[in-house]
């Protein structure tokens, strides 16, 4: 009787952590499997899958960077995602501040406009952007990717930052005005120093979205010298068969910076995602 009760409370105490642990394991399993396989020799990739490896090799990573020059797509992705993030955060911050705080007509309409654009299907503007970039001789260039990326990055930053600026106490800015600082000076000396958490969150999310973007990169780059990481990975071809080892190694490389960012900033990311209720 007492024994059964103890067993039951123990079971109850452990049920939740165990269930949570199982859930986490299930979610992470595909990533584990990919990482594991990227370290498995090619000839054993499809032979008798085992959860615990017997032998790990770095062959695929070596091949990835020596034979395939995977540095190039990594560099391209960093440049494009970085430039997109900087541009949209700089322009987006001042725009968001105006939309969040200054009094002028048409603000609500503009905000709705920004949100509507963030929901544009990318495929709907591929054709004119292609023609436009071709006209401007920007196909297969960095600006030729950054410009299209602004279509989603700019609305994203504005939307997130408007939400953030609205949460700052307005009295701080009013105190700045009373102290004799103009709107811009208040923005610079009071609002911005207090906003770096929001701006950092926004930059992180913008970078993630840009790093992961695929359709535009696939449409507006022509050769391996400008391919971004996602495009490069999907276009891996072997001589006889799909080079799975290298693909998975590349997948791990593409995931690594993302994972680092998530590890470092998970709380901020969740806050940003749910406060702005951003698109997935």
């Amino acid at each position: 009787m007492t024994l059964g009760a103890t067993a039951r409370t123990t079971a109850r105490r452990w049920a939740r952590p165990v269930a949570t642990g199982l859930l986490v394991a299930a979610i992470l399993f595909p990533l584990y499997w990919a990482a594991l396989s990227s370290l498995t020799p090619e000839n054993r990739l499809f032979a008798a899958p085992a959860l615990v490896p017997r032998e790990l090799v770095l062959d695929h990573y070596r091949a990835l960077f020596r034979e395939r020059d995977f540095w190039t797509p990594v560099r391209n992705s960093l440049v494009v995602a970085g430039a997109t993030t900087v541009l949209s955060v700089v322009l987006g911050t001042v725009c968001a501040y105006a939309l969040a705080r200054l009094r002028f007509r048409g603000k609500a309409v503009m905000l709705a406009f920004v949100l509507a654009v963030s929901m544009f299907p990318q495929i709907s503007i591929v054709s004119p952007l292609y023609l436009l970039l071709r006209e401007l001789r920007l196909l297969n260039t960095y600006p030729g990717l950054v410009l299209p990326y602004l279509t989603f990055a700019m609305p994203l930053t504005i939307w997130l930052l408007v939400g953030f600026f609205r949460q700052l106490p307005a009295e701080l800015e009013e105190a700045g005005l009373m102290d004799g600082a103009g709107r811009l000076q208040t923005l610079w000396a009071i609002v911005l120093p207090l906003s770096w958490p929001g701006i950092a969150t926004t930059a992180i999310l913008t970078f993630l979205y840009s790093w992961n973007e695929f359709l535009f990169a696939l449409s507006f780059t022509l050769g391996p010298e400008r391919h971004t990481v996602p495009v490069a990975i999907t276009l891996f071809r072997g001589q006889y068969q799909v080079p799975w080892g290298q693909i998975l190694a590349a997948a791990v490389v593409a995931t690594a910076p993302v994972a680092a960012i998530v590890l470092a900033a998970q709380r901020r990311i969740v806050a940003g995602l749910t406060s702005g209720a951003v698109k997935g």
């Binding site: 949570t20 859930l23 986490v24 979610i27 992470l28 595909p30 990533l31 499997w33 990919a34 396989s37 993630l208 790093w211 992961n212 695929f214 990481v229 996602p230 990975i233 999907t234 799975w244 693909i247 998975l248 997948a251 593409a254 995931t255 993302v258 994972a259 960012i261 998530v262 590890l263 998970q266 709380r267 990311i269 969740v270 997935g280």
Partner: peptide, 26 residues
């Protein structure tokens, strides 16, 4: 909670094509 949140965020944060490739491999 932080660990769980990180685990949950990871699939969302990685490139869609990477996720697709991993599942295609499986």
């Amino acid at each position: 909670r932080g660990m769980v949140r990180t685990a949950v965020l990871l699939p969302w944060a990685i490139p869609t094509v990477v996720a697709a490739l991993i599942w295609r491999f499986m």
